[in-house]
Amino acid sequence: MPEVIFAGPDGRLEGRYHPQPERDAPIALMLHPHPQFGGTMNNRVVYNLHYTFHKLGFAVLRFNFRGVGRSQGEYDQGIGELSDAASALDWLQANNQNAKHCWVAGFSFGAWIGMQLLMRRPDISGFISLAPPANLYDFSFLAPCPASGLIVNGTADRVAPPRDTEALVAKLHEQKGITITHEQIDGAGHFFEDPHMDPTMAMVSAYVKRRLGETSR
């Protein structure tokens, strides 16, 4: 997979980009977990998300937030990381100017950043949030949530307890004009360890396929 370096708001950002031969292929941006707790673009969940989207025909970019790997800068409490994500999406769109659809997928801290990116970018048509840490971060900015998406958590998640995810979903369900699909993986922890990874990715794949099928009618 081609390594790419592109300009971010605080220096160069390192990524991995997997294009498609079709000029109008949809695009998807992957966002990794917390940089200060070992989160990188090569996190197993993010890696699997990347290939799940690519198998569905998306041109996919995952990248390291500032201060991670070869990406320049320092951790910025989520503020700078949101700007990094916006720059990454700019780069992805510039390299796929005929893309039919634009999705963002994030895991843990990356899910929080991804849902903030939704508020900035009305061109995002769908999202995947895996294990959003609703107990650790404020998601009240989703008022209203501008796009429909899928939220998935494990029933045995001790980092982001299911009750907090359920409360977040309940708030989003009150909003009109969008559909939030919520799925739980029975017995899965925060990192969707085996044997839960494959069922999680199958769930993501089925959801995205269904959404793409609805928009092509």
Rank of each mutant, 00 (worst) to 15 (best):
F6E: 08
G80Q: 08
F107I: 09
G67D: 12
G106M: 11
I113C: 04
I27Q: 00
A94P: 00
D194L: 04
T52F: 07
A7E: 15
A170E: 10
S205R: 14
E214N: 06
I27W: 01
R211N: 03
L29K: 03
G15C: 12
Q77I: 01
L29M: 05
A7C: 09
D164F: 13
F63M: 09
A59N: 02
N64E: 08
L13M: 14
D84A: 11
G80F: 08
A167C: 02
M115P: 00
G69N: 12
P26C: 00
F107C: 08
G57S: 12
V4G: 11
F141L: 13
T215V: 12
A206D: 14
L130P: 04
H182I: 06
R12N: 11
A94Q: 14
I128Q: 04
E166C: 02
G110L: 07
V4C: 12
N153Y: 05
M115R: 05
F127C: 07
G126D: 05
T155M: 03
L118F: 13
Q175I: 14
A202S: 13
Q97T: 15
E166Q: 14
V46S: 02
P21E: 13
F53M: 15
F53T: 09
P162V: 15
V45E: 03
N43S: 12
P133I: 11
F109E: 04
E14T: 11
A25N: 00
G38Y: 15
G15N: 10
S108P: 05
F37V: 08
N96V: 05
F37G: 07
G114E: 05
P161H: 07
W112L: 03
R44W: 02
D90A: 08
N43H: 13
Q20H: 12
